[in-house]
Amino acid sequence: MLDAIETLFVWIPLILQGFLLNLAMSFIAMAIATVAGFFVGMMLLSRRAAVRLPTRFVNTSIRNSPWLVVLFIFLLALPFEVKIPGFGVAFIPDWLKATIAFSLPVTANVAEIVRGAIRSVPTGQTEAAESLAFTRRQVFWKILLPQCYKRMLPPWMNWYALLALGTPMAAILGVQEALGTAQEAMEAAGGKPEFLVPFYGFLLLLFFAYIYPIALYTQRLERRYAVKD
């Protein structure tokens, strides 16, 4: 056991390097999902059925498929490089493909958050604003959004935490993040069974140390922003 922990310490720097990739993937995917989710959320609220219904169908399908499956589809079916006219060929590394794959289900869920938050504002407010001659756009930006922002923040952070906890799945497809690096390290160090508990245990602690403070902060926000009935 002591031997195994010693081995773990030798490899910790490399595992932490891998963990940086988990962080990078989670940040980028969340940024994509936030922007895209906002627009998809608007489409879910569209007055036009031709926009609303197909969007809802696609959104629900994505929300209903496992992340692992989305990950497989993206890693094996997306091209490895994209030709951008005028810029030449851009190479898409695996971790970036995984990031795009992760951003997809999160986008679908952020869209739901946006839709739910806007729908939760009493319709009386929209009506009142309309009677004061606000345009539909003004109602959205000046009346609805400022109130929704606070309601959206806690679930948005919840989704960030779920996303960050999902990133080690990329190891299954060969991305060298924390889990992948830990597994390679165990193999390179002789693959002894006594490595398992310390190595996987270390990964659990590592993620916990990062996510738990976020979860605590989210809970505080939830309490602070709770709408009092």
């Binding site: 906890l165 799945m169 996987y200 990964l203 659990l204 993620f207 996510i211």
Partner: peptide
């Protein structure tokens, strides 16, 4: 609750099965 909510399920699974 906090232990399981705030760690990656894929690592939990590996930890349970192997550990």
């Amino acid at each position: 609750i906090q232990g399981f909510r705030n760690t990656p399920p894929v690592v939990q699974l590996l930890f349970f099965y192997f550990g």
